[in-house]
Amino acid sequence: MNNKPQAISSNSDRRKQFFKNIKSAVSQTNFTKEQEVKLKEQTETYQKFSYQPQEKTAEEKLFQFKAVLTTQSAEIHECSETKIIEKLEDILK
């Protein structure tokens, strides 16, 4: 529990006290073995993590693509792969 010692006047003294408190706490650490192992493991694996956003499905990508085109006032034409030339001819007419 906190016993509220008297305040210290100078900034360098405060800094010394601040680090002294931390050093003393770390040296007196009373973690259980289990906690220590877990902490060590987490500290080591900390840098290994990288965020992998979930891959969007083809349908989601197409939806997003269409949404962007629509906001840019583009006209969207949909057709099967074999009918592309016919579709282009229709548009060019």
Binding site: N2, I22, A25, V26, S27
Partner: peptide
């Protein structure tokens, strides 16, 4: 302004 106020004590305890 960086405050401790009992936190360093928690750091080394079972309440870390």
């Amino acid at each position: 302004v960086l405050l401790d106020n009992g936190r360093s004590k928690m750091l080394g305890s079972e309440f870390a």
